[in-house]
Write a protein that binds this DNA or RNA. Structure first.
Length: 445
DNA sequence: TTAGCCTTGACA
DNA sequence: TGTCAAGGCTAA
C-alpha cells in the first residue's frame, strides 16, 4: 500500500490514548479498545457506572469503568454495525473506502506539514495540523459583488427527515456593497469592498486605534471566503445531502477558515502551539457563532439567514421546520442580531470582539497566561477607545457590547450541546474538524 | 475480563 | 499475492 503505515499508526487511540494498531470499527483505535468494543457488542453486554457516568478513560484507568469506556467508544465514533452479526471472519466491510480516504488525507496532511517546514511533533487527534492544509493563498477576490454569483448549491434536494428543512434560495447580493460600505470605514489593506465615506476616522477626525486597524487587516475577506467555501462544498458534498449535513459541512469549512484566521493573526501567532490549541478548543463554537451573527448584522436581510456561501434561508421556513431546540436557538440568535444591529456594531468592532473571544485568559493550564491576559486587556482598551471615538455620546455602548458578548457565550454553549447530541445520535458527519473540536472540548472539560 | 497475538478472507 | 480489518484464541 502506498500510504505509509506510520502516518495512521502515529496517532493515539481516541478512547484511551494507547498506541493505535489500525482501523477498527470505523476509526483508528488501539488493540485493547478494539477487543473491548467487539466483546461488548457481540455479547450484548450491559454495564453500570458506579460513579456519575463521567469517569476518565485513559490508558491506566480504562479497565475501571466499562460503562464509561463503552460510552466513550460510541462518542468518538466507533460503529456498532461494523461488528458482524454472523461473526464471519476476514474480508472487508463497507468502511473500507472510508479508511482509505482517511489514510490518504492523513498522508496528504503530513506531506504538507513537512513541505511547509512546520512542526510535526505529535498533535492530538484533533486536526490541528489542518491549519497547514488550508494555508494556500486565497483565490482572487471577486471585485464585482453584484454580478458575482456564488457557485449554486440550490439544486440540492432537502431531506424531509432533516430536523430543520428550510428551503434554499439563491441570494443575489444586491445589498452586499451597500452594507459593506455602511460598515467599512476603515482599514488600509482590507480587501473588503470599502466605502468612499471615511466615517469618523477621516484625515481630519480622530485616528482609528492602530490595534483595531490591525485586527481588521487580519479579518478574512467575506467574498473570498464565500467563494472558497462554496467551491469546497461543491467538491465535497455527498450525493443526497440532508440540510443538516450540508450545514455541518459549511460549519466545518467556516471553522477551518477561523482556525486559519487565528493562526495568521497578530498575537496568536506568537503563542506556543499548545496554548494556541487550548484557546481554539475553548472558543471554537463562540467564534463560529460570532462569524454567523456578524454576517447577519453586516450583510443580512431582515427575515432571512445569510449563509457563508451567500445563500439565504427564510427565517419563517427555519422556524416552521426546526425542532424546539433549534427554533429556540435561532430565536435567541435573532434577538442577539437585533441588539447588535440596534447598537450599529460595525466590522471593526466585530474584529475586536473576535480577538476578545479568542484571547480568553480563563482557559485552564495556559503556558503563557500572562501574555494572553495582557492581549485581552489591550483588545478591550482598543475596543473601548474605538467605541468612544465612533459614539462619544453613547457612553453605555461599550457595556452593551460586552453584554452581547456574554450572550454570545451562553448561546454558543447551547449550540454546542445541541451539536453534541446530534453527534451522539450519529447525525453529524464524522472525520471533520467540527467533530474533532467537539471531542477536544469534551475531553478537556 | 483484558489485551496481545493469530487466523481468516475480500479486495486491490 | 499482499494488505488489513474482521473474529478467535488464550495467558495473565
Amino acid at each position: 500500500m502506498e500510504y505509509g503505515h506510520d502516518v495512521a499508526l502515529d496517532e493515539l487511540c481516541p478512547v484511551c490514548g494507547d498506541k493505535v494498531s489500525g482501523y477498527h470499527y470505523g476509526l483508528l483505535t488501539c488493540e485493547s479498545c478494539k477487543g473491548f468494543f467487539k466483546r461488548t457488542v457481540q455479547n450484548n453486554k450491559k454495564y453500570i457506572c458506579a460513579e456519575n457516568q463521567e469517569c476518565t478513560i485513559d490508558i491506566t484507568q480504562r479497565k475501571r469503568c466499562p460503562f464509561c469506556r463503552f460510552q466513550k467508544c460510541l462518542h468518538v465514533g466507533m460503529q456498532l454495525e461494523a461488528v458482524r452479526a454472523d461473526r464471519m471472519r476476514g474480508g472487508r466491510n463497507k468502511f473500507g473506502p472510508m479508511y482509505k480516504q482517511d489514510r490518504a488525507l492523513k498522508q496528504q496532511r503530513k506531506a504538507l506539514v513537512q513541505a511547509m517546514g512546520l512542526r510535526t511533533d505529535r498533535s492530538p487527534p484533533l486536526g490541528y495540523s489542518d491549519l497547514t492544509l488550508h494555508s494556500s493563498p486565497l483565490p482572487p477576490a471577486k471585485n464585482d459583488p453584484i454580478s458575482y454569483q456564488p457557485p449554486s448549491l440550490c439544486s440540492l434536494s432537502l431531506s424531509s427527515n432533516s430536523p430543520a428543512a428550510p428551503q434554499y434560495q439563491c441570494a443575489v447580493f444586491s445589498n452586499w456593497t451597500r452594507k459593506s460600505e455602511h460598515s467599512s470605514n476603515c482599514s488600509p489593506g482590507s480587501a473588503t469592498t470599502v466605502s468612499s465615506d471615511p466615517g469618523p476616522f477621516s484625515p481630519h477626525g480622530p485616528r482609528m486605534p492602530e490595534l483595531v486597524m490591525e485586527f481588521v487587516r487580519c479579518d478574512p475577506d467575506e467574498l473570498q471566503l464565500q467563494s472558497k467555501i462554496s467551491a469546497c462544498l461543491l467538491r465535497e458534498q455527498p450525493a443526497n445531502p440532508s440540510t443538516f449535513s450540508l450545514l455541518c459541512l459549511m460549519a466545518d469549512h467556516t471553522l477551518l477558515s477561523i482556525v486559519e484566521w487565528a493562526r495568521t493573526s497578530i498575537f496568536f501567532k506568537q503563542l506556543k502551539v499548545n496554548d494556541q490549541m487550548k484557546l481554539l478548543h475553548s472558543c471554537w463554537s463562540e467564534l463560529l457563532l460570532l462569524d454567523f451573527i456578524s454576517r447577519q448584522v453586516l450583510f443580512g436581510r431582515e427575515g432571512h439567514l445569510l449563509l457563508v456561501t451567500g445563500q439565504e434561508m427564510e427565517l419563517s421556513d427555519v422556524a416552521s421546520h426546526a425542532g424546539l431546540s433549534v427554533a429556540s436557538l435561532v430565536q435567541r440568535g435573532q434577538e442577539l442580531v437585533e441588539k447588535l444591529h440596534f447598537l450599529k456594531v460595525d466590522r471593526q468592532e466585530f474584529a475586536c470582539i473576535k480577538f476578545l473571544v479568542l484571547f480568553n485568559p480563563d482557559v485552564k493550564q495556559l503556558e503563557d497566561h500572562q501574555f494572553i491576559e495582557s492581549v485581552q486587556e489591550q483588545v478591550e482598551g482598543a475596543l473601548l477607545e474605538y467605541t468612544l471615538c465612533t459614539s462619544p455620546y453613547l457612553l453605555g455602548r461599550f457595556a452593551h457590547l460586552l453584554l452581547c458578548f456574554s450572550e454570545l457565550r451562553s448561546l454558543s454553549a447551547l449550540a454546542e450541546d445541541y451539536l453534541s447530541c446530534k453527534h451522539l445520535s450519529g447525525e453529524v458527519p464524522c472525520n471533520n474538524l467540527l467533530t474533532e473540536m467537539l471531542h477536544a472540548k469534551r475531553s478537556c472539560a
